[in-house]
Design a protein around this nucleic acid. Structure first.
Lengths: 339, 339
DNA sequence: CGAACTCCTACAATCGATTGCGTTCAGGTG
DNA sequence: CACCTGAACGCAATCGATTGTAGGAGTTCG
């Protein structure tokens, strides 16, 4: 377990540690005689030298490390994002620290604090609330920062999101073309950008096809979960608004909606069509398979990592946000309304 | 962004950095006058001092960091394990590095190399094949190491797993009590310990209730996936072995089995009962909801982290492996066989 | 033949915190 | 009053790698 140090490598190659360092580093190899470099490299290989990145980081003040803040990894949304981030980072020699915050501000603060202590080179954040002083402080401090899947009120923070408006529009269009005219929306939490964006997109898309989208047709779920979705659906049913189709803020809310329909003896899609959002893994295997707006989570993560690396490598670079196109996965939860 | 250093804190408090260090460190605070310590602490707070853990790690050769190797985070098995590990580690002031290896040995080697370079204090590994020279090398080198959900041939590596034998037995007993006598098994890959363990447990459990469990009743899937499960099921059907129930090596294999049944016009549970393994998230929402052996993945991860911390804190401690009890989640994919 | 230059390589400082050891000084003891 | 003790703190080395600068060997050119 005794680690091999650069000094030992240098000794074996008969050179000074400084020379060994330069020989082993791609950027500085040009400063060293080719044969010497080869000798050093050979010595390093023979001794099984692994550079101590802690020592390196101390000196260079860069850690090749990125902090990744998530609400909760067990939410099926996030693993693909994480993989996207990780794959891109790894290709660039970086790796992510992952921390779950459960959306608790104290946890988030602690995580940021801990990341700072470990001198991460940047942050990828998937937990942003619309108002988030912590994040604004991070951004203001000049630490590179990219948001995924969410945006904050502050405009000058780069983010990567899906094109929610277009996604919602395609869902509404799909329902419209099937013949639905009475469509309602189970919106997500209104303190998160996606919840707001999709809700607003719903109204816009409905207007665009000439349908009514008054507030009575929208119920807000308090979280992105099945129970919250069920509660919202119950509320909507209680209002007595006629409807033949439901657009849910995400797939979990749609599942909650399923439960309520079943409880009330209604069948999907025979009585009510349901559209979800995210197209999460295995949602094609529930009964009935859910029609859902597909969000390319892996790509979102990958793109976020790319953006972050850009800023890390060139802090002067101006911020840039990316919006990825969404598609609709049509399955059996949507059908023509009964006439 | 300019970080506050210990030296600055010391200056402000009017003491030497060494004293400041001792004052700020719980273990050495006793060496410092109480009032001085208070002064230092106040200075640290005022300046917003965050210790540079890189510098600390360099000096102390400990990083409060653990490497976590996974095959693939997007496999729904792993997020709960990761959370279990993370929650326990965080409580102890540690945090995990997560790396996906996709079960590729080179990736695994690269990950271990990278972890070594970052001086992790230990490893939690969920990727172990039965034979794994890399891991044996790690274990032999004295680096603390705990396996989760898998075991390797080498006996003296601590591991945390579910009690597969008992889980399989409870599944078989359930089917037996429903009246099934012809039961077959879709086994997982046989180069992984869980695949082997469950396969063997199947034979044992069948014998225990007095049923035949010849090799013709078992088909091996080449991976823990739906397509592999489907292929194995097709093979089994091709053999013409009569059966009224299937025990799948895991839930994904069970889903593959569902597909094949449907393709052949058979219905579950009317024609064939199916039992899965893992009880993964949302498997209760597929059609029909899958009866499955529930594995406490979060607890497995948490326990693994605890074991690892034990070894990290006391390297002399003798290895200890833990096996957690499993329960059966009975749902609608199992029913009495048709008479 | 010596000055000027180019290549390499060595020296030494540095990153920020920890820690063994030495020093100082107040207080107690004989 | 000389001496010892121990608490509290300062000094300086150290972890392992990076990097600006100095210096030495060899080459070229006036």
């Amino acid at each position: 377990m005794q680690r091999v140090t650069l000094k030992e490598v240098a000794e074996r190659a008969g050179v000074h540690p400084a020379t060994a360092s330069r020989a082993l580093n791609a950027a500085t190899r040009g400063l060293v005689n080719t044969q010497t470099a080869a000798r050093v490299e050979k010595a390093a290989r023979q001794l099984g030298y692994t550079p101590n990145s802690i020592a390196r980081s101390l000196k260079t003040a860069r850690s090749a490390t990125v902090g990744l803040l998530l609400p909760d990894l067990t939410n099926p949304l996030f693993p693909p994002i994480v993989r996207g981030v990780e794959d891109v980072l790894r290709a660039a020699g970086y790796s992510p620290w992952i921390i779950n915050t459960d959306n608790e501000p104290e946890r988030e603060a602690a995580a940021i604090e801990s990341f700072r202590g470990r001198s991460v080179d940047g942050f990828v954040v998937a937990t942003a609330r619309l108002q988030d002083p912590l994040l604004e402080a991070v951004a203001a401090s000049g630490t590179p920062l990219v948001l995924v899947n969410r945006r904050v009120a502050t405009p000058d923070i780069p983010s990567v999101t899906g094109d929610d408006a277009a996604g919602v529009a395609s869902a509404i269009r799909h329902l419209y073309e099937l013949g639905h005219r009475d469509i309602v929306h189970l919106a997500g939490p209104q303190d998160l950008s996606t919840g707001v964006a999709r809700r607003q997109a719903f109204r816009q898309a409905m207007e665009d096809v000439g349908l009514a989208a008054g507030p009575e047709r929208i119920a807000d779920a308090t979280s992105w979960s099945e129970p919250a979705g069920a509660t919202a659906m119950e509320e909507l049913l209680g209002r007595g608004v006629p409807h033949t189709a439901v657009l849910a803020g995400n797939d979990l809310i749609a599942l909650g909606c399923y439960d309520v329909l079943e409880r009330h003896g209604m069948r999907c899609p025979d009585d009510v069509s349901v559209v979800g959002f995210n197209d999460m893994p295995f949602i094609d295997r529930v009964a009935p398979p859910l029609t859902s707006v597909r969000v390319p989570h892996y790509d979102i993560g990958a793109e976020a990592a790319r953006l972050l690396l850009e800023v890390v490598n060139d802090p002067e670079r101006h911020v840039r946000s990316v919006m990825l196109p969404l598609t609709l996965s049509v399955r059996r939860s949507t059908a023509r309304p009964r006439t």
